[in-house]
Nucleic acid binder design. Sequence first.
DNA 1: AAAATCACCTGTCCGC
DNA 2: TGCGGACAGGTGATTT
Length: 260
Amino acid sequence: MPELPDVEIMKQYVDATALHHKIKEVNVTETRILENISKSRFSRELKGKSFSKTTRRGKHLFIKAAGRYLHMHFGMTGNVKYFKGTDDQLRHVRVLLQFANGYRLAYICQRLLGRVGLVDTIEEYIETNKLGPDVLEISPDDFQKAAQSTQKGVKSFLTDQQTMAGLGNVYADEILFQSGIHPKAAANSLDEDRLQKLYKKIHKVCDYAVNHKADPEQFGKSWLLPRRGKNETCPRCGGSIQQIKVSGRSSYLCPQCQSK
DNA sequence: AAAATCACCTGTCCGC
DNA sequence: TGCGGACAGGTGATTT
């Protein structure tokens, strides 16, 4: 789930709930999701502090806590939940923060592919992990230059977090569908018109998704995203949706509407 | 240089 | 009903 729109919604959720409460207790119930920090130091460093603001970069969320940052990455199944009372009903809680106001913030991750840690600065994290600019921040010029300088398939280009951060398997498919571009088209084979269109669609799709809570059920009927599955038809031409592998991942597309 | 493959994980669904 | 295998929206290392 967690690509740029999903993480942006989580950011807004944290902003609306978990800021400005003193952290009373920290419980790490699964140490495998911790990055470069021990359970005890993680807990010690957060205890007594409060969150003041959040920053998102690509699929990464940074929550400021007294000069440092709690970093969260969500893998394929990560999420956050703010609630009062016990976490008895919640499965897969990996980190639980208890606030002085009686509420808790849970980091949930079924498949343990997400990561949580502490960083001194966001820049430091970006640098050591070679994270590219947020996909909504990259300039049209830089986007075009990056595309023209690689012969990767365009889908691999869009989802490479070092080139630009934020797009994943599902939203890349959506953007390419709405742009009429085949996922295997070489990035450097696209002319300027198509690249411009693609750039605009990235923003259109991401903005729309964020404005609709990143909830596929709220997406328009012209979207491909809710139709990932067998025997689906193209909302545009009525032809059948095809599933292929691109760089080892399932890609859905309409061969009639999307060309190389 | 780019694509494929494996590995990390759990849970669900499908077919036999 | 049970079980093996494929697969799921991420990513990094290694191999081709």
